[in-house]
Simulated assay, not measured.
Amino acid sequence: MSAPGPSEAPVFPRPRRLVVGVDGSHDSARAVATAATLAAACGAEVVGVHAVGLMHRIDGEMRPSDQNRERIATDVATWAAPLGERDVPYRTVIEDGPPGLVLLRVVEREEAGLVVLGTRGLGSSEGVVLGSTSHHLVQHSPVPVVVVPHDAALP
């Protein structure tokens, strides 16, 4: 099978399910808005995924995750709320583990057709163009990954 010629665009199936990383960061909010637009256009469901480590940032401080599961669930619901405002069917998933590995697990389990991420999350340093999680997904995802630039105009 040969690659498409210059006038032939590759055809990708419409995803039935999108995975979007949610962590409360500015870039994650932009990814959620983009996922809502893409899901509405495709008629897809969105799965908002949040990875929890041993510690979690709550009200600007790092606190033990195991003692704050209720608060984390409330925060994730708030971060994913724009999906519901766009009438996009969605669910949220909260799992323990490093964000890159958690996202890949959910992509596989949910048979997602697309991943949407911000360029950087809460853990990335200023000046870093691509955060470790988005870099990891671009390198290892079995499905296409949309990385929403920090300064992109929202759809």
Rank of each mutant, 00 (worst) to 15 (best):
A36C: 07
R71S: 10
V107E: 07
G53L: 08
T34M: 14
V106I: 15
V93W: 03
A112N: 02
S25I: 04
H56A: 14
V52Q: 08
V49T: 06
A77N: 09
T119C: 13
D75Q: 13
G21D: 03
A112R: 02
L137S: 01
H136G: 03
V129N: 05
G43N: 03
T34F: 06
G127D: 07
V88I: 08
V128Y: 08
E111R: 15
R57K: 12
L117P: 05
L38R: 09
G127A: 09
V46W: 00
H50I: 02
R17D: 00
P98S: 13
L117T: 14
G24M: 06
G100F: 07
G43L: 07
H135R: 15
S132E: 11
G97L: 05
R105M: 01
L103P: 00
A80S: 11
P82F: 06
E111Q: 15
L122C: 05
G97A: 08
E85F: 01
D96Y: 10
P82K: 11
V52P: 03
H135K: 10
H136M: 04
L54W: 11
A35M: 04
G84F: 03
D27R: 03
S125M: 15
L103I: 15
V116C: 05
A31Y: 03
P15Q: 00
A35D: 01
V93L: 11
T119N: 10
V49R: 05
L54D: 14
A44L: 01
G131E: 03
G131K: 05
T74E: 14
A77I: 04
L122F: 05
S25R: 05
A39L: 08
A29K: 10
G60S: 06
A44Y: 00
D66H: 14
V106D: 02
A40V: 02
A35K: 02
R17M: 03
A77F: 04
Q67A: 15
G43M: 03
L122W: 04
I58Y: 05
R105D: 14
H26Q: 13
V116W: 01
V106H: 05
E111M: 10
P99N: 08
P82H: 07
E61K: 11
T74A: 13
G21T: 05
H26Y: 04
G97S: 08
A31P: 08
V19A: 02
R86C: 11
V102K: 06
R14G: 03
R16M: 04
D87E: 15
G113M: 00
P98E: 14
G24T: 03
A35H: 02
E61R: 15
G84A: 14
